[in-house]
Design a protein around this nucleic acid. Sequence first.
DNA 1: AGGAATTTGTGCGTATGTATC
DNA 2: AGATACATACGCACAAATTCC
Lengths: 234, 234
Amino acid sequence: MPDPNALPIYQRTAERLIREIAAGRLLDGERLPPERDMAVSLGISVGTLRKSLADLQSRGLLERRQGSGNYIRHQPEASGVYAFFRLELAKGGGGLPTAEVLSVARLEKPRPAPGFGPSPEAHRIRRLRAVGGVPAALEEIWLDGARAERIAPRDLSESLYLFYRDRLGLVISRVEDRLGTAPVPDWTEAPFGPTAGQTVGYVERTGWDQEGRAVEFSRTWFDPDRVRYVARMR
Amino acid sequence: MPDPNALPIYQRTAERLIREIAAGRLLDGERLPPERDMAVSLGISVGTLRKSLADLQSRGLLERRQGSGNYIRHQPEASGVYAFFRLELAKGGGGLPTAEVLSVARLEKPRPAPGFGPSPEAHRIRRLRAVGGVPAALEEIWLDGARAERIAPRDLSESLYLFYRDRLGLVISRVEDRLGTAPVPDWTEAPFGPTAGQTVGYVERTGWDQEGRAVEFSRTWFDPDRVRYVARMR
DNA sequence: AGGAATTTGTGCGTATGTATC
DNA sequence: AGATACATACGCACAAATTCC
């Protein structure tokens, strides 16, 4: 008798494989066993396994080659929509973008936010973003509570979207950014160039997953004298 | 015997449905017949049809509700590059965006602009943009002089990008927007809510044609109290 | 309120096609 | 050419969600 609370087999299988990849037991470039063999060893049908594999493929974690095999793709490279939105220095030149996690907390969702995700709670991640070593923006990200049990600051040491993909199996496939100006918030965590209350550039973002569900909401305050917000569309 | 050059049935079916939507034969919100019925009328199996429908869903054209039905999701303004960048009212609600041409002139290119096009001259088009009847932004577009001999204001009565496409054979296929804040310029042409010199939202855009040549440069000042600049990425 | 009917979601099995080795 | 492996397509049974009466 199946557990009524359990996720579908194909989802459990996909998440299991994602965990294997995140844990390093499946390495980049590695070839999986043939689908028939995998299905047998997992105790599921080939069709169900194929649905799991298609899921991994759509998340960019697997490359499927007809006649050849299924290959793990675990590149820590930028993929997906975030490559198209970035902060860069206002006065020419590059400058490496970095992000320092200031705090992580699980809280009730903020009220002025648009609806996202099923949970009444969300993880609030506050970051101080810098470009070329210069603090340039404050960022507050709200991730729906149903997506992760707990998040520790060191989970996010690499990159936020890698954490999403590798640890949560979450790929943000569509975002909408709303831009304007807003006063700098008064955070206890952050030293930031402009004084609290001063009007700066402001971006509000909603992020959706592949199934079209809103899962993320974020706000960024940036110093327009130091940094520009860039959106690129192909 | 199946044509070896033909696409798979599920792909052909998906494209057929997409064409139906694009042609307006399937309207937004419309409910499709039950999958079993559709499959019969298309002469394919339910499984194959379901794969086509999943394709449409992943493209955001279809919403599938278990126990209810499959519903067309078609936002006609969501096509083309410029659909991804728009102004909308800050306080919810739609509101028809309009643009009034204030002046058109052929001038030397502005100096602080990034390079675009081969000519030393460019057409400068100034527009007053409104949303829902309320003036919300000033816009200045520079189009490389080599792209057109002369431009009359009434050429632009319809839409700037229709003029580009239909009269100049120019399709903007990539844009990059840089956002920040800037003081309102002191134009003689324009009545605009905020006083000249006041700091407002500011967007600087470079536009490229299909061959990757930069051809257009524009600047927009918008009142962040009235209007938000929205960038959407798929 | 509640049960029946409808509709999509999940899972399995099988046969055949096509690309790769 | 043959074997291997993924892709496509079909059909069926049951589960889960929604809708209708």
